[in-house]
Design a protein around this nucleic acid. Structure first.
Lengths: 216, 216
DNA sequence: TGTACATCAGTGAACGCGCGTTCACTGATGTAC
DNA sequence: TGTACATCAGTGAACGCGCGTTCACTGATGTAC
């Protein structure tokens, strides 16, 4: 069921202005992080008065939630499109890294430090599991990972697979998808946070090495 | 060279009050995240007026920097003490996890979303490399990791080892220490951020599995 | 041991600021007859 | 095609709030003779 979205000029204008607001919001987040996001500052940047934005977003919280949703949507679409174009897990790994580097603060909005007390709406959780779904597909189809047999973990996953409830992936694939996620996130998040700065090594080497290891 | 620290009653009182302020700061960070930290709120919580705190910290920024320093110090000491007590990399991994779970926001203060523009003072970088040093010791001494030979990455590390300049670890150990760091951080940070919530699996199983894999 | 002075902790008032959000209102744009 | 009315975008003033930080001051604590 799609919400009407009558295509009147006014509706189109509304949609465009909402998009414009979000774009300025992203710029502000890139410059000062998510906590520094301010409706008034966005309005000023757009040459409008502060209260005007309340025609488009009910509150600051609603705007942020929407940004989080868009970030998840963008990542899910990117990963999905890459998979649909025939890429294997290695391809997904490279797509993930490119997506993250494209806008680090967007990555952190999803996977960064959580704000105590904030809880994402259900539809966002749905998008998150869509991402896992794509990973599971790739992990199931591809060659099995170079992994020592880890029967203990696989037994655990075989019995704790709510997150993959409607996916036929075998335990080895569950495990493979999880390692793909956690290992790449480990390197990516440290890189984006600048933790490798000054160490002299190239994070990309580390990343592709792990990716090779995961998809050999 | 140690800064005097004359042990007068006044000095002891000062030190104790600084500690008390920091403790309230940590509670506030645990409750609302680091961006929500407020000097006035801490003062109120302690039954003092806001300006009083300026006797103990020159500014909010100085307080936060000090908290970051303490977090690094605490982690470095924990890891070092664990290593000194004879633990191998597996032991360090468990110590790391326990330390992180003990206060997630403290972990995120070190490894979480960076604030664009903030740059840590040099002495903090020094503590960070002290941690890497302990890892390198353990990685050098222990059994070599179960790793496929990755000559490409090892060649890169052999020539980009500023971060381990004054450590005699061979490339295999450099690689081992890095993987230890990035893989465990990947799982830990996702766990602390609540990304496994609702998935039904136990992050501890994933963590110990990776740790086993790294220290077999 | 007592007095005179310096040091320092903490207060209260104040400044300037930006925040999110509400409200009554104006003016333009679209809709119905 | 033109008029009457409803809808909606945006404004400016205002509210209440909390923030970091400064400043002049009071009162207690320590130090020197």
């Amino acid at each position: 069921m799609v919400i009407a979205g009558k295509d009147t000029p006014r509706e189109r204008y509304r949609a465009q202005l909402r998009a414009e607001i979000k774009q300025h919001a992203w710029e502000q987040i890139a410059a000062a992080g998510a906590p520094g996001l301010s409706l008034n500052a966005i309005a000023k940047q757009m040459g409008m008065s502060g209260p005007a934005l309340y025609r488009y977003f009910a509150s600051r919280d609603e705007l942020i939630t929407e940004l989080i949703r868009d970030a998840y949507r963008s990542l899910a679409d990117t990963i999905r499109a890459t998979a649909d174009s025939g890429a294997d897990l290695a391809g997904l790994g490279h797509a993930l890294r490119a997506w993250a580097l494209d806008d680090p603060q967007r990555y952190f909005l999803i996977y960064g430090t959580p704000v105590p007390g904030y809880h994402a709406p259900d539809d966002i959780t749905t998008i998150a599991s869509e991402i896992m779904d794509t990973l599971l597909n790739a992990a199931t189809g591809g060659t099995p990972a170079d992994t020592p047999d880890d029967s203990h973990l696989q037994a655990h996953l075989a019995e704790h697979r709510e997150w993959a409830a409607d996916h036929p992936a075998p335990p080895t694939a569950l495990r493979h998808a999880l390692l793909f996620w956690t290992r790449l996130h480990g390197i990516l998040s440290l890189e984006l946070a600048g933790q490798f700065t000054g160490m002299g090594l190239d994070p990309a080497e580390l990343y592709t090495s792990e990716l090779r290891h995961l998809t050999r």
